[in-house]
């Protein structure tokens, strides 16, 4: 179990129409760890994690090649809908469903997939809310539309919504970039707890955040994997000069 591999990526290439965004690389993402993906804007960070749960392909003209193994299964030879239930995603902007209450938002992944048992739904929603530390905070507003909450709370509702489906892996695309420092801090704390049960891959622009919360760090530049290693190593003793300049802010 210790340091076992959750996602095994090989020869991953991605395109938008004729523009190649990922140039072909492989790596292994460890189970129950937080892996931070860093790199300059436009280096393919978002595209990279969107390839890990087959969200890349929903963009018209997008293409992928290579393989991504979830445990032993190639996700590109499976049903994408089922893969996305096992590999959840949290986005940059808190995108709650405005026509639904907080409860319905969090239950959506289960109830819309056919779970009708009210008791069970309630349990899952409360557990997910508790996991993101919102149960006490908004417990009484749970049946109101989610739109009245602060953006930090909204983002935690989105995380709870992703957790409710009980995925194995959670991909996060700059989940704190729309939040103030306190709300970001809440989410960082939350991630450290969540990694007991989930494998987390997080894209971030914030070096301090990557250094604080992650166990492993991936540095991407211009669609290539430049460096991948344990976070202390990457930040303190980077092997590649490009990693060092990026981390120290000397160049992109």
């Amino acid at each position: 179990m210790l340091n076992s591999c959750k996602l095994k990526i090989a020869g991953l290439q991605a395109w938008y129409d004729s523009r190649q965004v990922l140039k072909g690389f492989g790596m292994e993402i460890r189970a129950n760890k937080i892996t931070a993906v860093i790199g300059p804007s436009g280096c393919g960070k978002s595209t990279f994690i969107r390839c890990l749960n087959r969200m890349h392909e929903i963009v018209p003209g997008a293409r992928v090649s290579g393989s991504v193994l979830l445990d032993e299964q190639d996700i590109y030879r499976a049903n994408p809908v089922e893969i996305r239930r096992r590999i959840g995603m949290v986005f940059q902007a808190p995108n709650v469903f405005p026509a639904m209450s907080v409860f319905e938002n969090i239950a959506a992944g289960l109830s819309l997939n056919g779970l009708r048992n009210k008791q069970k739904l309630r349990e899952v929603v409360e557990k997910s809310l508790a996991q993101v530390g919102l149960l006490e905070e908004i417990g009484s507003f749970i049946h109101l539309p989610a739109t009245g909450l602060s953006s930090g709370q909204l983002q935690r509702v989105c995380i709870a919504r992703a957790l409710a489906v009980q995925p194995e892996v959670i991909l996060m695309d700059e989940p704190c970039s729309a939040l103030d420092p306190i709300a970001s801090f809440h989410i960082e704390e939350l991630l450290s707890e969540l990694k007991q049960q989930y494998t987390i891959v997080i894209v971030t622009h914030n070096m301090q955040q990557a250094a604080r919360i992650s166990d492993y760090t991936v540095f991407l530049s211009q669609g290539d994997l430049i460096e991948y290693g344990s976070t202390p190593t990457v930040f303190i003793n980077p092997r590649d000069r490009r990693t060092e300049s990026y981390i120290t802010g000397r160049s992109a």
């Binding site: 749960n53 809908v81 089922e82 469903f97 959506a108 992944g109 919504r161």
Partner: peptide, 29 residues
């Protein structure tokens, strides 16, 4: 209807037709 809602719903592992019928249409009702 923001594209982000479609992505959020797809990322929950909902099939495309349910995303449209249960999330996007009610939002635009």
């Amino acid at each position: 209807v923001p594209q982000g809602l479609r992505e959020a719903a797809l990322a929950l592992g909902l099939p495309f037709w349910k995303v449209i019928l249960k999330i996007i249409l009610p939002t635009a009702a």
